[in-house]
C-alpha cells in the first residue's frame, strides 16, 4: 500500500466554479475569473459552470471602450493555458435569454495527452446534466 505522503502525491479534488451573474453590472464575474486563475496554480480538477445570467459572460464581441471598464472577456480564451478546460454552459439559460451557442466566444484548449490537438472547452449541457455535474463535485464555489 502506498502512503500518499511518501510518494508526494496530493489528493486531487473536483472544484466547480458556478457563475450566475452578468459581467460589468456587478463585480462577481471578474472576481470569479480571478479566483479561477489564482486557483489554477493548485492543479486541481477544475470545471466552470455558466447558468442564469452567467451565460452573458461568454458573449462574443464585447467592447467596453465606451463604459470605461476593462473588457475581461478575452481572458476566458486563455483559460486553457491554465489547464482550465471544462466550461459547462446551460442550454436553457441561453434560450431564455434569446441566445444560442453561436452568440458565444469560441474557447479552445490544446490537449497535452492528444498531441496538442485543439479542442473546444465549452460544453452545452441541459439543466439536468448540469445538476449531475454539480452532484459529482467535491467543492463548489459560487459567484
Amino acid at each position: 500500500m502506498n502512503d500518499m505522503a511518501d510518494t508526494g502525491e496530493q489528493t486531487i479534488k473536483k472544484f466547480l466554479y458556478v457563475n450566475r451573474k452578468a459581467p460589468y453590472g456587478t463585480i462577481y464575474a471578474l472576481e470569479s475569473l480571478e479566483v479561477v486563475l489564482i486557483g489554477a496554480a493548485f492543479e486541481q480538477d477544475v470545471s466552470l459552470a455558466f447558468l442564469d445570467d452567467g451565460v452573458f459572460q461568454l458573449m462574443k464581441g464585447q467592447d467596453t471602450a465606451d463604459i470605461g471598464v476593462k473588457n475581461f472577456s478575452p481572458t476566458y480564451r486563455a483559460l486553457g493555458d491554465f489547464e482550465v478546460t471544462k466550461l459547462f454552459v446551460e442550454k436553457e439559460s441561453l434560450e431564455e435569454r434569446g441566445l444560442s451557442e453561436d452568440d458565444l466566444m469560441e474557447i479552445t484548449y490544446e490537449d497535452e495527452d492528444d498531441d496538442w490537438e485543439e479542442k473546444p472547452s465549452i460544453h452545452l449541457v441541459n439543466r439536468s446534466e448540469l445538476a449531475a455535474v454539480m452532484a459529482e463535485q467535491d467543492v463548489i464555489l459560487s459567484f
Binding site: L37, A40, K70, N71, F72, P74, T75, R77, A78, D81, F82, E83
Partner: peptide, 14 residues
C-alpha cells in the same frame, strides 16, 4: 503580445 490578446499574463508553462 499575449497580454494584448488575452488581457492577462501567460501561465509560466505557456
Amino acid at each position: 503580445d499575449y497580454y494584448e490578446e488575452y488581457q492577462i499574463a501567460p501561465a509560466v508553462r505557456v
